[in-house]
Design a protein around this nucleic acid. Structure first.
Lengths: 226, 226
DNA sequence: AACAATTTGTGATAATCATCACGTTTTTTA
DNA sequence: TAAAAAACGTGATGATTATCACAAATTGTT
């Protein structure tokens, strides 16, 4: 296993920031860094798992094979942990993670990670804060998926890419129309139709995967009211 | 504040089980036990919050006010923590909890709870395990809500009450038809129709709120395939 | 027990959205 | 660079489900 110099890593998680040099050195001995290309699977549902996965660079989708199609649960951007719930409680992964662009991840030995949690309460504290945040996100997500119509959900997704991922009004969406549908609980065709409507209304300029938000306020209104 | 004798409590959370007598005594000094009647609000979305809530007895619904209606995120049964994510990261509650039957909860001082997490890594560990479990549940929920049709989701809910809450084939559902709809992302009317179909097909006997599962296997099939 | 209020059940109708079909464009690969 | 494969856009159609309307049943109240 490649020895990593975690102490000098400047993309530490807030949990890792609580560790001292000695602890970071131990961590480096139980870590490996791997690069993935766009489209590659980082870890897969139902596969055995004994690593915590930390996303250092890049964007990934978290997805589960549903009864009808792939369900994209969320899209995550570095830096963040990817596989804490999936590895902590279960022996097998309960969801998959796939790179949406070239990414770098650290595979951290689960045993060592648990040691840190058991021995370092500050570390645990930060992990708990993280898990709480994602649970709240997940709850909000449930409401939005359930109660908004397709236009609202597509608008939501565009606003999500704008605010959470690219922090710009102009970006390339990292997913196909099919994946977009799997992300906002609708069909590829419906996504296309909503996008052309937004384009026709000069709210969002849509050119293939390239998105330019023209009227942010109106887009927010659509996100709220559908 | 009423002083509680946490040491002698036999409904301790797995986290609280890691505490020694001295710690449990401290906990008792920073806890208060409150009883709620069916229908009463335990804590409310957008209200200020400075307590961790532990459900000792009873069943509650966790809900969020959505753009169109109340969204029931989940239904939880004692013993469990209710408000970790809502209090840990935020100053205000991000969701409400309402008693579905007479319940007993402990309000635990957030400051003290954070002290335990910072000082007792075994305690933190158990909290993390809990949070991981609920995140996984939440992910599965997302898939089921998105990809199953109404029959499947209603069947799911009945199986949920059977397996997770009452552990019996016969029970009274603790929610109205409207709430049932808010729980499985549909209208009151659609819930009624699916329930009469299940009753007509002799799969589930439905008499008002009283449910008797007659054909468990068929119900599971409906849950899967709609 | 009688009344009011709420909850429930069910038919009719309308809206939303999925699916199908097919042509076009873009991307990948040989 | 040409061929093949994949992704995309859009119209037509049908299925699912929401909404409306109203009667029946249940629950709560005086």
């Amino acid at each position: 296993m490649k020895r990593l110099d975690c102490a000098s890593c400047n993309i530490k998680s807030s949990a890792a920031k609580t560790l001292n040099v000695a602890e970071l050195s131990i961590m480096g001995e139980h870590c490996s860094e791997v690069k993935f290309k766009k489209g590659e699977t980082i870890f897969k549902e139902n596969a055995f798992s004994s690593n915590i996965v930390y996303l250092k660079h890049g964007i990934v989708k978290i997805h589960i094979e549903g009864p009808n199609s792939e369900q994209i649960i969320k899209i995550s951007k570095a830096p963040t942990y990817l596989g804490i719930p999936t590895t902590f409680d279960e022996k097998i992964n309960r969801y998959s993670a796939t790179a949406l662009e070239n990414t770098t991840v650290c595979f951290i030995s689960l045993e060592m990670f648990k040691q840190f949690i058991r021995n370092n309460a500050d570390f645990s504290y930060e992990i708990i804060v993280d898990l709480c945040k994602s649970e709240l996100d997940s709850f909000n997500n449930t409401v939005n998926r359930a109660q908004k119509n397709i236009s609202g959900r597509v608008a939501d997704a565009i606003l999500f890419f704008h605010k959470e991922i690219y922090k710009s009004k102009e970006f390339q969406i990292p997913i196909s129309r099919i994946e977009f549908g799997n992300f906002v609980d609708t069909s590829r065709e419906s996504v296309c139709r909503v996008l052309t409507d937004l384009d026709n209304g000069k709210i969002v300029k849509v050119r293939g995967k390239k998105i330019t938000i023209l009227d942010l306020e109106l887009l927010k209104t659509i996100s709220k009211n559908g």
